[in-house]
């Protein structure tokens, strides 16, 4: 869907992207990074609106430097900042923007009505945008990115400025774009937590470098572990589990056991019974992507070496 090879963008005073190499698959992809990490710069380059200093990138198989026009025909873009004029209605604005994406007049009207309904704007779509709440404005911005039925949308900080309920609605909407609408999504946020709920794949960048790129399932799934607490002799249980070929470590009073293919459950039960100790609890522990950041220093070095 998107590939970048040693992509670098230097501005006179800062390096926004530093030899970024990343492969982004179709689906909902979260692009996470702190403010100034290079997320918006990356999107502008991918839209073909900003030439990279060096390196190459392609979107939907099209080169960002030479085929920007064709990329912009097939992608949608929701900017981070407020970009809406207050003196027109949502319908009027989206019809106009749809036509500028190449839709014929009638198609632009139909698609506008459809898209505004999908993002959840109903009666208010005929009123001037100046009177809209932040949540409604974000929906209008999202609708203009979708009106021409793109194959891919870039959503730059779509939850910015929304209250908690508004965030949940927006995240649900983004998930639906990826699943029900079948449109790939590259969505940015500085909040990892909200993107891991809705993304199939997470890319983390910092200081213009790649920190991490993997599927959400790979991160939260394969690292699934059991937390086991016993009344006494935990070290003996660890030794017994390791002896049975399972990765188990002691951290404090708790034992962390890798689930592997599922044999761990029975194994823990049996070994606990063998040792004759009391089992206080046994629970699943899903790793959250936030834990990626614990490994940041080492992975950053790896990424830099690869680049």
């Amino acid at each position: 869907m998107i590939t970048a090879q040693a992509l670098t963008k230097r501005f006179p005073r800062v390096t926004a992207l530093d030899s970024l190499t990343v492969e982004v698959p179709p689906g909902v992809v979260g692009l996470v990074g702190a403010n100034g990490a290079g997320k918006s710069t990356l999107i502008k380059i991918l839209l073909g609106l900003l030439p990279p200093t060096s390196g190459t990138a392609s979107v939907l198989g099209l080169d960002v430097v030479t085929e920007g026009d064709r990329i912009r025909e097939q992608v949608g873009y929701m900017p981070e900042h407020d970009v809406l004029p207050p003196d027109v209605s949502a319908t009027e604005l989206i019809v106009q923007l749809g036509r500028l994406s190449g839709l014929p007049k009638t198609a632009a009207r139909e698609r506008t009505a459809d898209t505004l309904r999908h993002v959840g704007l109903y009666e208010e779509r005929y009123r001037p945008i100046g009177g809209y709440s932040t949540g409604m404005k974000q929906r209008v911005k999202l609708a203009q990115a979708l009106v021409h039925d793109p194959q891919l949308v870039f959503l730059d900080e779509p939850t910015n400025g929304l209250d908690p309920a508004g965030r949940i609605d927006m995240l649900g909407l983004i998930r639906r774009i990826g699943t029900e609408f079948g449109i790939s999504v590259l969505v940015t946020s500085h909040l990892l937590g909200e993107l891991e709920q809705i993304s199939d794949h997470i890319v983390v960048i910092d200081g213009g470098r790649l920190l991490h790129s993997s599927s959400t399932a790979a991160v939260t799934g394969t690292r699934e572990r059991l937390l086991v607490e016993v009344t006494e002799r935990p070290e003996a249980l660890v030794a017994a589990l390791v002896g049975a070929g399972v990765t188990a470590t002691l951290s404090g009073r708790m034992i962390e056991v890798e689930i592997g293919d599922g044999v761990a459950y029975d194994l823990v039960r049996d070994r606990v019974a063998d040792l004759g100790v009391g089992l206080v609890r046994i629970e699943q522990r899903r790793h959250r992507i936030a834990e990626i950041f614990r490994a940041v220093p080492s992975e950053a070095t790896v990424a830099a070496d690869v680049g």
Binding site: R72, P79, D82, V83, L100
Partner: peptide, 18 residues
Amino acid sequence: SRDLRFRLTSLYFSRPLG
């Protein structure tokens, strides 16, 4: 000026419009 002030140009130039 309206397009510039409300940054509507962002929405224009991210479309196939040079």
